[in-house]
Nucleic acid binder design. Sequence first.
DNA 1: AGATGATCCTGTATGC
DNA 2: TGCATACAGGATCATC
Length: 304
Amino acid sequence: MPELPEVETVRRSLAPVLAGARIEDVAVRGRHVTDEPPEVFRARLRGRRIEGLGRRGKFLVFRLDGRLRLALHLRMTGRLVYEPPEGERLPPPVGGATPGALSAGEGRLAVGWRPEAPFDLRPEHTHLEFRLAGGGRLLFHDMRKFGRAWTWVAGRTRPPYAGLGPEPLGRAFTADRLGRSLAGRRAPVKAVLLDQRTVAGVGNIYADEALWLAGIHPSRPAGSLGPDEVRRLRRAIRLVLRRAVRGRGTTFRDYRDGLGEPGGFAAHLRVYGRAGSPCPRCGTPIAKTKVAQRGTHLCPRCQR
DNA sequence: AGATGATCCTGTATGC
DNA sequence: TGCATACAGGATCATC
């Protein structure tokens, strides 16, 4: 579920809380979370200081002392949530109220109402539990068990995100670069966008949104896009991701940031999840089809 | 080489 | 109400 904007929002919400924190211990429940033997994983992390929290594509990356790195991938339903020490309240949400995104009924979230603890976390789905010095805890929760964790030493071992394409909001993601990735390929352009080697962090929601913004049909063979269309697509990807980050990501049901706060961008989606509703540009009903085995939303008139 | 389909899981929504 | 089926924000692997 979480794509770049959601992972970035988790990162921003947790970075102030975790910077400088020490991991006293880690409980690993279940063997599926990491390829490493749980005892090895635990021994590597125990006692480490968290120097910073970064992101690469949809990977959250912890920089630990001794050049150790920890990466987490939330996949579809993963959540990483901070639980403050007993008796303490959660820190205030990061980024303030979500502009225009909350209806009146949801107002309690916008005016700073805080749950005492991250709600909706079920112990049987909590696969990693980091105990921090001072009594706070960091919980990796994932009902579908798709989420994964990796550790490695920077500069010695390949990170799990080696091979990802450029960061879409960075300088390396040029129209030229995107054009080369699409050139000569007969696969649907949407399938190529979902391939993390093309660009890192675009998933099903924002692929549909970007293709709608650019006015490009998701089934178009990637290699058939002209230079102008490639430029439009690059701009659309960057625009929609920047806006979604500002809106703190899209929450349908599961997604929450690191403090348990839902994202506010769902109300700004133009096509995703809006089958049957009028296209914001031309009024034609939004269609839902399947492209590259993924549910795909588009305007049949604006996108040809 | 490159594309497609099955698969990993659980929860929820929909239809009969 | 109960049951079956489809589908879900991701990614990998086997197969064609």
